[in-house]
């Protein structure tokens, strides 16, 4: 069967001062939106930089479109569109001048597509990029990323610092992009509500470890927030949870085994669907011993 993973990281390790990613493996499926979530400083940007070959792993392998960077760097990058959370463009240039520089790098650059997005986003072509607001800068990045028929769009925190209206607009554009073709989107965010409407898969990273990659439906099936009185908690029941938050009135806990929680607590506890934020919060709270590693 043809390999349907656009990105594959295998047993990747990378260490810096005070931070490391160890034995990290990840698959990103072709034609889907994968949301990459995790708190600040857990390794999201490092992973994205390794996917873009801005950082080389100390060990392990990174392949994109089934190709490695060692031998196919230009071929891979021709097919990727990128958006970073900071403006990476020459700030003294106008968007029109920048386009003239960037377009020459891409074989499949499409001027008409570029102007379509410029109009759609209301971007000024002749104003210097340094005068752009954060939202405009992200729109400019997105315009460049979408103007060369990229098969994979990699975005690092594209929605951070944006107002809700533009965030919604951005998500709509990504939606449209998916309907139009076979594009794969991989984007990191810590605004998890962005993902509910658009992501097919969620990849969750915590402290340099890949906790899971699951589709939203699967998360709903497996994870649950359990709420109940403190009398329900003992050592055995508490071990079923990733982490527990106790108050004077009761407890609230996250489980990755919803069915078992339903069996154990039955009607005695309230079992609810967790938000992605709940999963992030409790995973951090529960730290390593309770985390079920599952890819």
């Amino acid at each position: 069967m043809e390999n349907q993973n656009v990105i594959e990281l295998r047993h990747v390790s990378k260490s810096f001062d005070g931070f490391f990613i160890e034995d990290f493996s990840l698959d990103v499926k072709k034609g889907f939106v994968t949301g990459f979530i995790g708190g600040n400083g857990v390794g999201k940007s490092t992973t994205i930089k390794m996917i873009m070959n801005l950082l080389q792993p100390d060990s392990g392998s990174v392949s994109v479109f089934g190709l490695d960077y060692e031998n196919h760097e230009k071929e891979i990058k021709q097919r990727i569109g990128f958006v970073f959370d900071e403006s990476v463009f020459y700030e003294n240039l106008t968007l029109a001048e920048l386009k003239e520089i960037v377009k020459r790098a891409y074989v499949k650059w499409d001027d008409s597509l570029f102007y379509d997005y410029v109009n759609k986003f209301n971007l000024p072509l002749n104003k210097k990029i340094k005068t752009f607001s954060k939202g405009m800068a992200i729109k400019a990045s997105l315009t460049i990323a979408l103007s060369h028929h990229a098969e994979l769009i990699v975005m690092d925190e594209p929605t951070s610092g944006l107002d809700p209206i533009f965030r919604r607009e951005l998500l709509e554009i990504l939606h449209q992009l998916l309907q139009d073709g076979d594009t794969t989107i991989f984007f990191s965010t810590h605004i998890t509500t962005d993902l509910d409407s658009i992501a097919d898969y969620i990849t969750f990273i915590h402290d340099g470890e890949h906790i899971f990659t699951k589709d939203l439906y699967q998360i709903e099936e497996e994870y649950a927030i359990v709420k109940g009185g403190l009398e329900l908690l003992d050592q055995d029941t508490e071990q079923e949870f990733i982490a527990t938050r106790k108050t004077a009135y009761g407890f609230e806990a996250l489980t990755s085994n919803k069915r078992k929680a339903e069996e154990v607590f039955g009607e005695m506890a309230l079992i609810e669907a967790p938000t992605l934020e709940d999963i992030m919060y409790y995973t951090k709270k529960g730290a390593v011993p309770h985390v079920q590693l599952n890819t």
């Binding site: 873009m52 070959n53 801005l54 760097e73 230009k74 071929e75 990058k77 021709q78 990727i80 990128f82 970073f84 900071e86 403006s87 990476v88 463009f89 020459y90 960037v102 790098a105 891409y106």
Partner: peptide
């Protein structure tokens, strides 16, 4: 110096250049 900012290195290295 025109290419010295780390953000510009991110741009150049994300474009299809080695």
């Amino acid at each position: 110096t025109i290419d010295e900012k780390s953000s510009v290195h991110i741009l150049l290295n994300s474009l299809p250049y080695t």
